[in-house]
Design a protein around this nucleic acid. Structure first.
Lengths: 227, 227
DNA sequence: GGAATTAACGGACTCTGGTCCGGATAACCG
DNA sequence: CGGTTATCCGGACCAGAGTCCGTTAATTCC
């Protein structure tokens, strides 16, 4: 199990969109081009992209992520607003791009990294580690994650990042010989790791990170209990 | 168990806000006034409120709920935009008000109605019925529900309607002598009934309503399995 | 190096949710 | 009734997300 996934490329916020863009642009019927037609970004575009990301990261660090406006970022980066939206699509896209590096390394870790997160450990332990890592991520980047997920209704779920998580959790559940609908259970489990919910539990319900991890572990344990 | 809840008033989108408003306005320390100081709405205000709701309901029925703008509603109702926002706070508030009647009857049913949704049936069955009823509600009012929940981050979770659901599910779990953190599990279970997710499962994953109900039933069954 | 091509730029513009406050009016009182 | 007051009205106004298109400048090709 998991073999197909183990060789698949990492799907992150940024490159998924770029790949989609490339594939959309290419209409040659029949033959899949794949990998060649990724024409290099123009130098000024790359420079601007980097500047925007750097400036945005700084601003988001200084103030509440939710409060930073697109105008503000564009202005501080010394570019026009159009440039922002061309590069990142919308506000959420920019926020996702800020999370991209960490996102890649997370996916790298649970696909190919060391146990218990990566292959090697039994699926139940991998799943526990997956949730714990996610909770840690939310602990650090919570507000940014919320800003990134706070787009049009359902956009979050349709996005490739959710698809990657879902595929991973689904595979783990199947490996652990769970006998129900593994996809459905994946949705439910990922629902427990939605940043909006976790922040609510942390801030409104005053649950501690340890408590949340314990609850997650208990949940997984109960669902995947050896029979 | 559940005795306290069984006597509590129904908390719905609309009256919760009104109560909150009243209680905010009243600063008398010590004595809780409760129930008297709800000064009647001025006649023109009541008339406008009704008109707005009627018009909004019609518009939301005609087109996609997501596409109806506040200006459009105000204009069609022949009132100023300010009037809309004064009555309902924000867009989500208006959407919630549209769902209010059904919401009340739902809460009435699971608090005091006939089994298996209401008291009488064993908690596990009540929980299954709760989810099924919710899924049916989403089937009918999905887009409106999404529009109503699609507010500021975390607003949905902080709202009294979520609190009511959470209290109910928590109580059921406790009654069924679940030995983990009942509040946490309530959040997880309610996460499986979030309208955004359910619509994703219905539309993107092409799951049928029956399939969703079956999955919900299986989930509850597995979590509350007799030991 | 210079012309042609085309990607990228940027800021004016639109659209929509939400706020504000001077004016209108329902409700209450004598 | 006529006056007073608290409530409500409504549309001008604001802010921020996202679009459009005429202009600019990398890149490419001779």
């Amino acid at each position: 199990m998991l073999t197909q996934m183990d060789r698949s490329p990492i799907i992150s916020a940024d490159n998924a969109d770029r790949i989609a863009g490339v594939m959309r642009g290419n209409d040659s019927p029949g033959v899949l081009p794949m990998l060649e037609p990724v024409r290099q970004e123009r130098a000024d575009a790359a420079r601007n992209r980097a500047t925007i990301l750097a400036v945005a990261e700084r601003l988001v660090g200084e103030q509440d992520a939710q409060a930073v406006t697109m105008d503000e970022i564009a202005c501080a980066a010394g570019v026009g607003k159009g440039t922002l939206f061309r590069h990142f699509g919308d506000r959420c896209g920019l926020m996702r791009a800020l999370l991209d590096e960490r996102e890649r390394s997370f996916q790298e870790d649970f696909i190919r990294g060391p146990a218990p997160l990566g292959p090697g450990a039994p699926p139940r332990e991998r799943l526990v580690a997956f949730g714990e890592r996610m909770l840690e991520h939310i602990e650090i980047q919570g507000d940014l994650l919320v800003a990134a997920e706070n787009g049009a209704p359902g956009e979050r779920l349709r996005h490739s990042v959710y698809a990657a998580y879902r595929a991973h959790v689904t595979a783990l559940l199947r490996d652990s010989s769970y006998d129900g609908d593994v996809g459905y259970l994946a949705d439910v489990l990922l629902g427990a790791l939605v940043s909006e919910l976790v922040l609510f539990q942390r801030r409104e319900l005053a649950m501690s990170p340890e408590q949340l991890k314990a609850c997650w572990g208990a949940l997984v344990g109960r669902l995947l209990a050896a029979r």
